[in-house]
Design a protein around this nucleic acid. Structure first.
Length: 176
DNA sequence: TAAGTGCGTCGTT
DNA sequence: AACGACGCACTTA
């Protein structure tokens, strides 16, 4: 994680569940934030000179987010700028992207997938550091024994996202 | 069974 | 040196 690319601008994405915020660098989507009361976005005049590449990425991001929230897998994803992550985190985030829509893995399974089977707890830390939740599906990682595990965006969002993907988060899935 | 405690482990700050 | 989005063994009730 030598040099994280600088974020150029932050654009809103209106959804049924609130206004998400997408942050872009020259390399692609660098962050996606859950709806937040005091989120700051670019002013209308600034967004008038949004680079063409970024406006194209933003449309893809918008469509992908909308897809997941309405219950189906995204057709396409924008390029991700994950340069802010450590090597370990990038390995984890890579593994997360392998989890298909509607499927889940455990933290221990992810640790195995990255050939670091004892770094289970560290995997949880890397999931929490995921800068692009929803699109990089850290919500698909559960704890063992059908426990929900944690979520930095709030467990509420984890439940919502899992239910969007056809998973029951009540009854079978326990809190944890 | 269910819920709580203690501890090993390892990347990050 | 301390802290977690963990997991497992073990103890209670």
């Amino acid at each position: 994680m030598k040099h994280a690319s600088e974020v150029i601008l932050k654009l809103p994405i209106q959804t049924e569940l609130g206004v998400f915020r997408a942050s872009y660098s020259e390399a692609g989507l660098a962050a996606l934030d859950f709806p937040d009361k005091d989120a700051r976005y670019e002013t209308p005049e600034l967004s008038a000179r949004v680079p063409k590449s970024i406006s194209a990425w933003h449309e893809i991001t918008r469509a992908a987010l909308s897809s997941i929230l309405t219950g189906h897998a995204p057709k396409r994803l924008p390029p991700f700028d994950l340069s802010a992550g450590t090597e370990f985190q990038q390995h984890v985030w890579k593994a997360l992207q392998e989890i298909a829509f509607g499927e889940t893995r455990t933290y221990a399974e992810i640790a195995n997938l990255i050939n670091n089977p004892r770094a289970v707890r560290a995997v949880g830390g890397a999931c929490g550091a995921n800068p692009i939740p929803v699109l990089i599906p850290c919500h698909r990682v559960l704890a063992s024994k059908n426990k929900l595990g944690g979520f930095s965006g709030g467990l509420n969002w984890k439940r919502i996202l899992l239910e969007c993907e056809g998973r029951q988060t009540w009854g079978a899935l326990r809190d944890g």
